[in-house]
């Protein structure tokens, strides 16, 4: 069983995961970095008690999604237009195309796609993590895939 990490170690181990989760939702590298940093600050400030390493990882993901939701609700976001700066990252045209297509999905679908395809969570685990019904997750995943198939003209 993996150990529960101190906040500094958690940045090393889960930093990329938290960043990617935020990046997959907010589509901006700088904003994703800010959100990831906030998530780890919350870990220090709230000092939650975890029952396992998996619990800690799930908490970090849940906190990241909450922060992303706050980001979308923030006045700053509502009054600014994102430049979608990931176009500056060294992506191939195909990767940019896929990211663009995923980014056009509603946030709830993006969360599910990220957790399933990047983190490898099962629908049952995603349901637990996002506090949603498993059937809801199954239909959201299915709708997201259908949407991506149509947009990308191929299987996702």
């Amino acid at each position: 069983m993996e150990a529960i990490l101190s906040p500094a170690d958690a940045v090393e181990v889960y930093g990329n995961m938290v960043f990617r989760a935020a990046f997959g939702i907010v589509k901006s590298q700088q904003d994703a970095e800010d959100i990831a940093q906030d998530v780890f600050f919350s870990l220090v400030r709230t000092n939650p008690r975890f029952s396992s390493a998996e619990h800690q990882k799930a908490w970090l993901l849940r906190c990241t999604f909450n922060r992303c939701n706050s980001y979308f609700r923030s006045a700053w976001h509502r009054h600014t237009t994102s430049l979608e700066d990931y176009h500056n990252l060294p992506f191939t045209p195909e990767e940019t195309y896929v990211l663009d297509t995923v980014a056009k999905l509603p946030v709830k679908y993006r969360q599910v796609i990220y957790l399933h395809y990047i983190e490898g969570y099962s629908t049952a685990e995603i349901a637990q993590l996002l506090h949603r019904n498993q059937n809801t997750i199954l239909s959201q995943l299915s709708r997201a895939r259908t949407h991506l198939k149509t947009s990308l003209k191929g299987d996702f």
């Binding site: 930093g15 990617r20 990046f23 590298q29 990931y86």
Partner: peptide, 16 residues
């Protein structure tokens, strides 16, 4: 496409 998505996400974490 899902592999491309994974690759892109991996690349996004390059600047840490």
């Amino acid at each position: 496409y899902s592999d491309l998505y994974r690759n892109a996400m991996e690349k996004a974490t390059a600047r840490d």
